[in-house]
């Protein structure tokens, strides 16, 4: 414990004495992480939006009969289906009134008589059957009824949303990999430059019997401090940006699209960043030590 504390304090000192170079590195890493946070927040918000849009709650059934007895009989059958929670029948008149209400500014709809509007049944699906495959299965069951002309739940939109969401996830994955590569390279090079400045000191430490742990641990500590500061700065900048955007603009015009990442996501990203930093640090120091050359050349 005493040894570890000693090495951690040396790491802190190492970070502090190289502050000029480290600030340049911190600013670069902060910028990269800020860009990543922006894309992450937008991706999470889009994902949330698409998930909401793709959530199938109802299936709409257009009928090929106007016989009220047949419709009543069919409604009874529908209510007995396991995946259906409730049903509502909309007559042509109901449809006309609903459309006229929701589109009050389109005056020519007033001239269309009720006979031109469809009548349909809206069936509410139980929570546990709202996934895409269950809805598809329900659609096939309903189509087997002769009375059903068309069963509709916006399948095309859902497929499109899923594709868009999938594409966005691929984009975010590629971006994450590229940014992780960029971060590793920046950290690797910053450490290398620092190490070259301390080449003589490291050689002397090596001469007097310093172990690799003694040499490596403070440098890794300094890298972790650097990453931690960069992360906090970028997360704060990203949070402030979106918070301001939401509170000053979007919420005022009733847009609740932007969703900030939760604490679990932030901690997870920090964990990955620390892992990348340690990896880049260890590789950088080890390659440096292996190529450092003899003490007395």
């Amino acid at each position: 414990m005493k040894k570890l504390l000693f090495l951690l304090l040396r790491g802190l000192k190492f970070f502090y004495t190289n502050i000029t170079l480290n600030i340049a590195s911190i600013l670069t890493i902060t910028t990269i992480l800020f860009v990543f946070h922006i894309f992450l927040t937008i991706s999470l918000s889009v994902n949330d939006f698409f998930t909401g849009m793709g959530n199938i709650q109802n299936i709409r059934l257009y009928l090929n009969t106007e016989s009220q007895d047949e419709i009543k009989n069919f409604l009874n059958k529908l209510n007995n289906l396991e995946s259906i929670e409730s049903t509502t029948y909309f007559t042509q008149e109901d449809t006309m009134e609903y459309i006229r209400k929701s589109t009050s500014n389109i005056s020519y709809l007033e001239n269309i008589p009720k006979e031109f509007y469809p009548h349909f049944i809206e069936a509410k699906i139980k929570d546990e059957y709202r996934d895409f495959s269950s809805v598809k299965k329900l659609e096939n069951t309903l189509k087997d009824f002769e009375i059903v002309d068309v069963a509709s739940y916006g399948e095309k939109w859902i497929v499109n949303f899923s594709s868009l969401n999938y594409g966005l996830k691929i984009f975010l994955t590629i971006l994450t990999v590229l940014l992780a590569g960029a971060l590793s390279t920046i950290l690797y090079n910053t450490i290398k430059i620092n190490l070259y400045r301390y080449k003589d000191e490291i050689k002397i430490y090596s001469l007097v019997g310093a172990s690799r742990t003694f040499i490596i641990t403070p440098i890794i500590t300094a890298v972790i401090i650097e990453s931690l500061i960069s992360y906090l700065l970028s997360a704060a900048a990203s949070y402030l940006t979106f918070f301001t955007l939401n509170s000053r603009l979007l919420h005022n015009i009733d847009i609740y699209f932007i969703k900030l990442p939760g604490i679990t996501t932030l901690v997870f990203i920090l964990g990955v960043l620390i892992l990348i930093s340690v990896f880049a640090g260890v590789v950088s120091v080890k390659t440096f030590l292996n190529r450092m050359g003899a003490i007395n050349e």
């Binding site: 003589d200 050689k203 002397i204 001469l207 007097v208 019997g209 310093a210 690799r212």
Partner: peptide
């Protein structure tokens, strides 16, 4: 081994012509 070199060196003092001081 690389790992045991530090322990060897802790028992040896080395002095150079160019001092090797900071």
């Amino acid at each position: 081994t690389k790992a045991s070199i530090p322990f060897l060196r802790r028992n040896i003092g080395v002095v150079f012509q160019d001092f090797k001081l900071l």
